[in-house]
Design a protein around this nucleic acid. Structure first.
Lengths: 207, 207
DNA sequence: CCTGCATTCACCCCAACGGGTGATTTTTAT
DNA sequence: ATAAAAATCACCCGTTGGGGTGAATGCAGG
């Protein structure tokens, strides 16, 4: 697991350096520091950060929120906001660009660290919506009664939209057996139809 | 826009009260305070919070992470973690249950406020009518034959897992009409079942 | 006017799904 | 060795879904 590369966008050099040092000492790599929006756009183009820390209140023409929009449009990276003060309007605008975290100065450094970690892992999770993102371990953490190997295999096929007979054919068992497994899956997931199963899975994976 | 109801799960009465007061003064409604896991489970059942603030390190048998799992399984509510200390293992476990925010004590109260707001709005966004970011315009760009208003309305409900009779009830038309619309939707989307429709939609939304 | 188009609904048929019950075999763990 | 869990399959029955056909209404634009 290589260190995650972070871009810091912060016009206050002291704070920026501070964060940079702290990240460097805690398994992150600082891919760059941008002191204004222009530099931020530049760094986004040349570097390939895994996440961005964005000060909302930059002293330049662009606010951090504009940069966030740019990130959403162009790079689809996770970012967290950093601010010393946010009025209702700013907070409203900040919410609209869907940040992956929000931290108010003065902040505990562990807050930043935890927020970053969670932002990155949640973001990675959101990117893998297909089946590949869902491991049996991950799924079982959300269930009262864990799935068996077979059940997991079948629930994946259900998720892909397979019918019982298609599943039966693929897994080399009878349709009756598929139905039995599905029945147990319904019980374990507290669902009544395969559509509920699929919705539950999607909700769990999005979390 | 009514005040969002928050459940606080925190074994330290002083902190819990503190948060409660602060939220109350800032457009939130505290639906309850739980001082241990049992109370938390109880409150989750009886109250209907919009979000939960969870202390990770409870002094009881259950940790906040267990409660988080319970929330994921049963209630699918947004929650944010609150902690005074988190080692690597705890943080790892915390990440796995996909919190919607993470705050380290001592925290700036505005941090809490912003995190809560963002957690709730992001969560609503994710749940939001099934088709996050998919407008009829956007969808129609991918179709040979565009959808009518009614068809779009119905396809959204299908995507959410509604049955034909449920849709009929919601839209105030007969099940036969729903079937007719769905038939046309199948044609336009080149699908044979509602599950294929759902899969197609999901694929389209991911560009 | 009248021609599309959207919307509404009916009826038939069969395949698929979900619930219930019960049973056998294989695998795993103690 | 034996008990527990997992996996296999069968049969019944009622509900739902999907395909086909047909048709009435209302509304907008040429």
């Amino acid at each position: 697991m290589s260190r995650h590369k972070i871009l810091i966008v912060e016009d206050e050099p002291v704070i920026a350096e501070n964060i940079s040092l702290y990240l460097d000492n805690n398994d992150f790599e600082v891919s760059g520091i941008a002191y204004d929006a222009a530099e931020a756009f530049d760094q986004l183009k040349t570097n390939t950060p895994d996440a961005v820390i964005l000060d909302i209140n930059l002293e330049s023409d662009h606010s951090g929120i504009d940069i966030a929009q740019h990130i959403n449009q162009r790079y689809q990276l996770p970012f967290i906001f950093l601010t010393s003060y946010a009025d209702k309007n700013t907070l409203e605008r900040a919410k609209q660009v869907k940040p992956d975290g929000y931290i108010v100065k003065p902040f505990n450094e562990r807050t930043l660290l935890a927020s970053l970690e969670i932002a990155i892992s949640n973001y990675a999770e959101r990117k893998n919506h297909g089946l590949p993102g869902l491991s049996m371990d991950k799924l079982n953490r959300y269930l009262h009664t864990p799935f068996s190997d077979r059940e997991f295999e079948i629930v994946c096929l259900v998720y892909q939209g397979m019918t019982n007979s298609q599943i039966a054919e693929m897994v080399f068992i009878s349709q009756n057996t598929v139905k039995t497994h599905l029945k147990n899956i319904h019980l374990k997931m507290d669902a009544n139809t395969r559509l509920e199963v699929i919705n539950n899975l999607r909700n769990l994976m999005l979390k």
